[in-house]
Write a protein that binds this DNA or RNA. Structure first.
Lengths: 144, 144
DNA sequence: GCTTGACCTTCCCATGATGGGAAGGATTAG
DNA sequence: CTAATCCTTCCCATCATGGGAAGGTCAAGC
């Protein structure tokens, strides 16, 4: 089947299929005489695998490993779990940061709502309360 | 002061300062005869504002609006809150998606640990429950 | 003075994953 | 046969950030 059909069958766009092939995530597809790529059901199955892994937020490199394990009869579940756990940790860390930002911003919005002050706490906080000193007097700066 | 000093004083890298100027987020800095950019404490203050907004996950475009409101004496807190709330919603949505992915993956890892089955549920799920591995039984492709 | 090293300038390239679109060839339906 | 639709490759853009090269400037030491 053509790339367009493989795309709609797998849920991966034709653009992405070509991209995955280009970066070596997928083997180069067979070509017809015309130069058109040709896919079979196994290819579509693999594309679906990739799409579901992407839906779970796995990176391309992680999917590369998962694909290798997928087709490795002698794989160990521990290997797969290791990749999944690494990804889980990354996502949990990301979620923590996000929650921190949300909490901070919620607090700011809340105090901006309550106080009918002219000075909005959101703006005040971002402005760090005063014209910045030239020297990093506050040690909380991170190195550039 | 030079861009490097403004960078360490504000916590925004020199690269980013130039970038922000280039995209018009910040006004073009004064130049000395040498061509060096020249910053004063107000510039550093503004840079700090931008950095703190970035730390809260605001996009460049949102910061553009916040900056305008910051220097607008006649701003309304409601305008600021609107931007903050929009951003808050985006982050909350992002957090929900992330939590979904985490929960799904945690469940998969959990079931992969409990069952000592040869077939890892993670791989099975990604393979859409079809038998699968079907390691390149068909050696019709060159290895990736 | 002059040298040296740190700093600045602009410009180009890369990331990660995705999409848009152009130019041109292939296939297919009518 | 023709027109529409598909395919090909190639280039560009995103978003925010960094790396690095080539070359100019500044400040400190001798």
């Amino acid at each position: 089947m053509n790339i367009g059909q493989a795309a709609s069958a797998s849920g991966v766009s034709a653009k992405m299929i070509r991209y995955y092939e280009q970066i070596g995530l997928l083997p180069a597809a067979d070509r017809r005489d015309s130069g058109y790529r040709d896919y079979d059901t196994e290819d579509v199955h693999r594309l679906g695998f990739v799409r579901r892994a992407r839906d779970l937020g796995f990176s391309i490199e992680q999917i590369r490993s998962l694909l290798a394990l997928w087709s490795d009869a002698g794989r160990s579940n521990a290997d797969v779990r290791a990749i999944a756990r690494t990804h889980l940790k990354e996502m949990e860390e990301q979620a923590r940061k996000l929650q921190d930002m949300i909490a901070t911003l919620q607090a700011l919005v809340g105090s901006c709502e309550k106080g009918a002050r002219a000075t909005c706490p959101i703006i005040e906080e971002l402005g760090d309360h005063h014209p910045a000193p030239a020297a990093p007097t506050k040690a909380r700066r991170r190195a550039a």
